[in-house]
Design a protein around this nucleic acid. Structure first.
Length: 617
RNA sequence: GCCGGUGUAGCUCAGUUGGCUAGAGCAGCUGAUUUGUAAUCAGCAGGUCACGGGUUCGAAUCCUGUCACCGGCUCCA
């Protein structure tokens, strides 16, 4: 028979040949690297038989697809090891994920990270034995018999589509219900590591039983695994919670409360720099600033619908002279009230009102995380009130604006998602279609690539979410742009049109950085605490060599401060080496050493954080 | 909230099967040193061992409740 290869050549093979035979025929190195094959676009095991005319591609572990097969097989090996070590374990599922794999188990007893080495050792035994993965097609009844005592597997079996049978994979004594494909044998797993153990609800539903999840990762080579582990360590070193303490930027105090960060002078200064830039940029972009109080009568939240739809995220009302007030979880109702303070004409639209609005939301204790998930935070919020015919241009404007903002902070890689109508939602089909189309056309006119997140919109309208990728390639959700027909309706927001009749404006809710807390946490990790000059709380520190240079150092500082530079002087009676070390630890961009030579010549010796000693200047 | 883990000085960590006055480095203070590109030396001070209850002759150590934090799940800016 003849098969076709990706480069359009054909290969002659004897009848009954498998994908593995094809790989061997092409070359022994390919055969050694092969993990699976794609036959006519469908990924299958290397042991799959070929038919005349098939288009065959050999999948290696270098490809994203091959890597995920490698990891999926590693998950099976993990499950096999756990079944041996902990008899009576019930199996959940064990997929490959972005950076590795996991497997969920219902174990007879609790385990911890300390148990991972023993499991790894057992896995290594299975790998060393190079047991083949064998696929079998079985009827449902047979599969049900095989998985007696495995309630989760039986549940999955029930839900398999159609009347088809099931496929099972065995490596040695371990058999799992699985679609496949898998590696030819366990010996192909060259480098793996178990990383952590965690709880996870069966099928991700918190009403279900909590299972034990073991995370791990696997790579085609030891070198790639080591590089990945090194990346994980680098991420740990960059952890904003650690750097926040080391650089004296912020802390979260137990007695103040969980999820309520306190900004120290240097952190507050960085935040001030960001806020100044943000306000100026917004004024330049045609926004106006507004300000609203932090609490409002419960009546406001009833009108807005938050009392009904958002109460689980809101703090309990406080009693003020018999009236109930609520700490705001969102800024929009306040901005709407400003809009409604007088009659608005169509000539005024679009109105763009921005505020660094602090909000408080109840977050369950287990989800709090440094600055990235807190209970009190400041959104870089704005609401745009516009006519329907202005909607698309306004969205384009917001997208272009956010790209400019993020670029300024050093982010130029994004993932963009368009979230469409969820099942529980309000408003007419027409409105939803109009708004979704406006978002889509706006994205296309700016030329941004995006994915659709079906049904992930907010109940009142569709939205665009953006994730930025940081220096380590990690994605952070910051930007959100939401179209809203609902609140204008609820608050009866209107403008007088050309026809002298009342019309309903559309609202756009948007936060570009998301919240200052999360964004700053992200910035800290992106820059590993070494902020670029414009954001550095101290841009230069002057290091007098000895006491007698302090006066000169003071004159230099004064001169630089007149140029609006943020300068400090280290007058401690310490060695220059010590002062440099401390400035390096604080990640100050420039160190200016002044001694006899500099004082005499009216210069400073510049040392750059990144480039070292630059000599006298 | 749920599962597992952790909580000792401002920070990073020791502290044996329950047993002497709970230790070290860094940071801080005092003194000496006047220093030239990543740590000068010495001394001093610093602790309700997260908090509450219990077991015990005796608890940092064992049990228990609460809180916080860490890794995840669910949720989210």
């Amino acid at each position: 028979m003849k098969i076709r290869l990706p480069d359009d050549s054909t290969l002659d093979l004897p009848d009954g040949a498998t994908a593995m035979d094809a790989a061997r025929e092409i070359g022994p190195r390919l055969a050694a690297a092969a993990v699976a094959a794609a036959i006519n676009g469908e990924t299958v095991d290397l042991s799959a038989p070929l038919a005349d005319g098939d288009e065959v591609k050999v999948v290696t572990a270098d490809s994203p697809e091959g890597l995920s097969i490698l990891r999926h097989s590693a998950a099976h090996v993990l499950a096999g090891a756990v079944m041996e070590l902990y008899p009576g374990t019930r199996l959940g599922i064990g997929p490959a994920i972005e950076d590795g794999f996991y497997y969920d188990f219902l174990l007879p007893g609790p385990i911890s990270d300390a148990d991972l080495p023993a499991i790894e050792a057992k896995m290594q035994e299975i790998i060393d034995a190079a047991v083949p993965f064998e696929r079998r097609e079985v009827s449902r009844e047979e599969a049900a018999r095989m998985f007696t005592g495995q309630p989760f597997k039986l549940e999955l079996l029930e839900e398999l589509p159609g009347g088809e049978g099931a496929s099972v994979y065995s490596d040695g004594d371990f058999t799992d219900l699985c679609r496949g494909p898998h590696l030819p044998d366990t010996g192909r797993i060259k480098a793996f590591k178990l990383l952590s153990v965690a709880g996870a609800y069966w099928r991700g539903d918190e009403n279900n039983q909590m299972l034990t999840r073991i995370y791990g990762t696997a790579f085609p080579s030891r070198k790639e695994l080591d590089e990945h582990l090194e990346r994980l360590q680098e991420a740990e070193r960059r952890d904003h919670r650690l750097l926040g303490r080391q650089l004296d930027l912020f802390h979260i105090d137990e007695e103040v409360g969980a999820g309520l960060p306190l900004w120290h002078p240097k952190g507050a200064l960085i935040r001030k720099i960001i806020e100044d830039f943000w306000r100026d940029a917004h004024l330049d972009a045609g926004y106006e600033m507004v300000m609203i109080p932090h609490i409002a009568s419960v009546e406001l939240w009833k009108t807005s619908g938050h009392w009904d739809f958002y109460r689980e995220n809101m703090y309990s009302p406080m009693d003020i002279e018999g009236q109930e007030y609520i700490v705001k979880p969102m800024n929009c109702p306040g901005h709407i009230k400003i809009y409604k303070s007088r009659t608005r004409s169509y000539r005024e639209l679009p109105i763009r009102w921005a505020e660094l609005g602090t909000v408080y939301r109840y977050e369950r204790s287990g989800v709090l995380h440094g600055l990235l998930r807190v209970r009190g935070f400041t959104q870089d919020d704005a609401h745009i009130f516009c006519r329907p015919d202005q909607l698309q241009d306004e969205i384009v404007g917001v997208i272009e604006f956010v790209l400019y903002m993020l670029k300024t902070f050093g982010f130029d890689q994004y993932e963009v998602y368009l979230s469409t109508r969820p099942e529980k939602s309000v408003g007419s089909d027409e409105h939803w279609e109009q708004a979704t189309a406006a978002l889509r056309h706006a994205l296309e006119s700016v030329g941004l690539e995006y994915d659709i997140d079906p049904g992930e919109g907010v109940f009142y309208g569709p939205k665009i979410d953006m994730k930025i990728r940081d220096a380590l390639g990690r994605a952070w959700q910051c930007t959100t742009i939401q179209v809203d027909f609902n609140l204008p309706e609820r608050f009866d927001v209107t403008y007088v049109g050309e026809d002298n009749a009342d019309h309903r404006p559309i609202m756009i809710h948007r936060a570009l950085l998301g919240s200052l807390e999360r964004f700053m946490g992200c910035l800290i990790e992106h820059y590993a605490g070494a902020f670029p000059l414009w954001l550095a709380p101290v841009q230069a520190t002057i290091l007098p060599v000895a006491d007698r240079h302090n006066d000169y150092a003071g004159r230099v500082a004064e001169r630089l401060r007149r140029e609006r530079l943020r300068v400090s002087i280290d007058t401690r009676r310490e060695s220059v080496g010590k002062k440099i070390r401390d400035a390096e630890m604080e990640k100050v961009p420039y160190m200016l050493v002044v001694g006899d030579r500099e004082e005499e010549g009216g210069t400073v010796s510049v040392r750059s954080r990144t480039r070292g000693d630059l000599g006298a200047q």
